[in-house]
Design a protein around this nucleic acid. Sequence first.
DNA 1: CCTCGATCATTAACCGGTAAACGACCTGAG
DNA 2: CTCAGGTCGTTTACCGGTTAATGATCGAGG
Lengths: 151, 151
Amino acid sequence: MPEFLDLHGRTSKAVRAVAEAAVRRHGLHLGQDHLLAVLWQEDGRTPGEVAAALNVTTANVVKAATRMTAAGLLTRRRDDRDNRLVRLWLTDAGRALQEPVERERRLIEESITADLSPAEREQLMSALTKIHRSATAMLTTPADQSTPATP
Amino acid sequence: MPEFLDLHGRTSKAVRAVAEAAVRRHGLHLGQDHLLAVLWQEDGRTPGEVAAALNVTTANVVKAATRMTAAGLLTRRRDDRDNRLVRLWLTDAGRALQEPVERERRLIEESITADLSPAEREQLMSALTKIHRSATAMLTTPADQSTPATP
DNA sequence: CCTCGATCATTAACCGGTAAACGACCTGAG
DNA sequence: CTCAGGTCGTTTACCGGTTAATGATCGAGG
């Protein structure tokens, strides 16, 4: 029922669907492009490092890495010095996706914000930043709804 | 990398996490509250009707309904006149959640938008509406990125 | 009356995401 | 040197979401 949560949820789903469709044209699933983006920036990171960079659990990265390894995008290799660690390396196929995927992502960004004036876009980013800050604060500070305002 | 998509994704995840934590305090999972909301409005709907109201697949509603039936929130019963149809009925437990869940959802809406002035809030809703419209349009009209502007 | 197509719900197989349990490995204190 | 505790990755079991295949039922035409 609440206005913002409802609109945000529907918008979020629609945006997600657009990104999903776009990335699927390159044989990827949504989320896999984020994992690739981290490795495009720097190769040979561990699942834990990738998870931290993506703000996701390590288990999630492991599962995705398994699928992407099977798909020929990644290579797994244990670290020689510390045998607990596993390092993820891009294959040529995984590296080849960088340019087209990043380009498409830029196009989506443009198309999806095309109806907004520069001022509107600026205000939207500002507002979303505030929402993001509030939300993350509410996650670490549980259930302060008894004191909504700080006098 | 794109500014908006990145910020939107992170914000979306944070907001989702807040809603998840809130609804979990009442023994629900995120999404189940939406299903309940439809039934709170009117009881005895079919999975297909609920799915259409939530903009979700019927299969998803069926799965959720199965779990919620096991949790004692719902009751399944086949329609007498048309035996293909199944109607979902709230139990007392399911109906009892309406007031606390809706109240908490309102509180979250307030808390999460507390840093925004009324004007900012208005602009945010307007911008999100435009984003939503663009995104849904891009879903039905695939790959018009070769003609970004309509001259 | 009977069949054939449309309309339902359901199931199974995938995804991304999570939390929890597990096991292998390193490291530092004794 | 040993061993206890911390740090990893992996596995398993959920949840919400999807698509595709299956199955039961209704309804209309012949």
